[in-house]
Write a protein that binds this DNA or RNA. Structure first.
Length: 264
DNA sequence: ACCCAGGCGACGA
DNA sequence: TCGTCGCATGGG
C-alpha cells in the first residue's frame, strides 16, 4: 500500500522523543511494532509505503493521518516564535500510541535519557512480551504480567523506577485504574486518575494523555520545555495554540533541543 | 572524576 | 503549598 501525505516526516515523528521502540533499518525505512504487529514503513518524498493491506487502519490511526495538520499549523503561524519552532520540524505529528505502553514508557523516562529509556523498554518487551517475529516483541498486556515481582524487573536495569513500574502494573491489572475509562474523563480528571500511580506526576501524566490518548490539552513540561517557555514565550502559551497545545508542545520541544537552550 | 538525563516522592519549614 | 534532596544507571 502507499499513500500521499504532504508535509509529513516519518523520521521526525518517530524520533522526536514521543515513542521509543522504532528503529531506522535503512535510510527512511522504519521497523516497529503497532497493535501487536510488526510494521515496516518507508517514506519516499510525499509517499508512505507499507505492506499488508490490512495494516491500513492501524497506520492511519497510529499516525493520526485523518487530522488536518495544515490547518493546525496555519493557526500556529499567527505567533512568530511558534512559526519558527514548527518550521524546524514541520513534519512531526502526534502519534496515537497504546495507553499501557505509553504509561510504562514515560514512567521509565523520568530523570533518564532517550538512549537508555529505549534500552530498558526493549528489555521489558523481550522478557515479558511475546515474540512476533525475528527480534520483534509485543509490549506485554497488563494482565499478562499481573503477578510479576520487583525482583523480576531487575534485568531491566531501570533502577529506582522498578517500584513505579510495579505499582502501575498492579493498579492497572487489578482494575483499580481502568485505562479504557480514561478516554471518557475530562482532561483534569484523567490526569488526576493517572497520578494515583506512584511515579506518575504532572509531566508523565501529560505525556500519557497526549501520546496515548490524543488529549491535546496536555502540555508536558519537562526541563527542555520549562527553559523554552521561559526564554521564548515568557511562560505563556500563545493564544493561537491553546486549542492544540499538545501539538504545539511537540514543535517547541524539538525547537528547544535544536537550539540547545540551556540555563544561564 | 564529575555531571546530567523528556521527574518524582519524601521531607521539612 | 513550596523549595530541596536523593534516587539507579550509564554515557559524555
Amino acid at each position: 500500500m502507499e499513500y500521499i501525505i504532504k508535509n509529513f516526516s516519518l523520521y521526525d515523528t518517530l524520533f522526536c522523543g514521543q515513542c521509543f521502540r522504532w528503529e531506522e533499518t535503512e535510510k527512511n525505512t522504519f521497523a516497529g511494532v503497532v497493535a501487536n504487529k510488526k510494521i515496516i514503513i518507508k517514506q519516499q518524498g510525499d509517499k508512505i509505503i507499507f505492506d499488508g493491506d490490512d495494516n491500513d487502519k492501524i497506520i492511519f490511526n497510529y499516525f493520526d493521518l485523518h487530522k488536518d495538520y495544515e490547518e493546525i499549523k496555519k493557526q500556529f503561524s499567527k505567533d512568530e516564535t511558534l512559526f519558527k519552532a514548527l518550521q524546524t520540524a514541520p513534519g512531526i505529528r502526534v502519534l496515537r500510541q497504546e495507553p499501557f505502553e505509553t504509561l510504562i514508557s514515560f514512567i521509565i523516562s523520568q530523570n533518564n535519557n532517550i538512549k537508555r529509556i529505549s534500552g530498558i523498554i526493549k528489555r521489558f518487551c523481550e522478557i515479558f512480551g511475546n515474540k512476533i517475529e525475528d527480534d520483534f516483541y509485543s509490549f506485554p498486556s497488563p494482565n499478562a504480567i499481573k503477578d510479576i515481582t520487583q525482583e523480576d524487573l531487575k534485568p531491566l536495569r531501570s533502577g529506582f523506577r522498578e517500584k513505579y513500574i510495579l505499582d502501575a502494573i498492579k493498579k492497572v491489572s487489578s482494575g483499580e485504574i481502568n485505562l479504557d475509562d480514561i478516554n471518557f474523563l475530562s482532561y483534569q480528571d484523567s490526569k488526576e486518575t493517572l497520578m494515583k500511580i506512584k511515579g506518575v506526576g504532572p509531566k508523565v501524566a501529560d505525556c500519557v494523555l497526549l501520546y496515548g490518548y490524543n488529549k491535546l490539552q496536555a502540555f508536558p513540561m519537562d526541563v527542555w520545555m520549562k527553559r523554552a517557555m521561559k526564554v521564548l514565550f515568557d511562560n505563556k502559551i500563545p493564544p493561537c495554540a491553546s486549542e492544540y497545545a499538545g501539538i504545539a508542545q511537540q514543535y517547541i520541544f524539538h525547537y528547544a533541543r535544536t537550539l540547545n537552550i540551556k540555563d544561564k
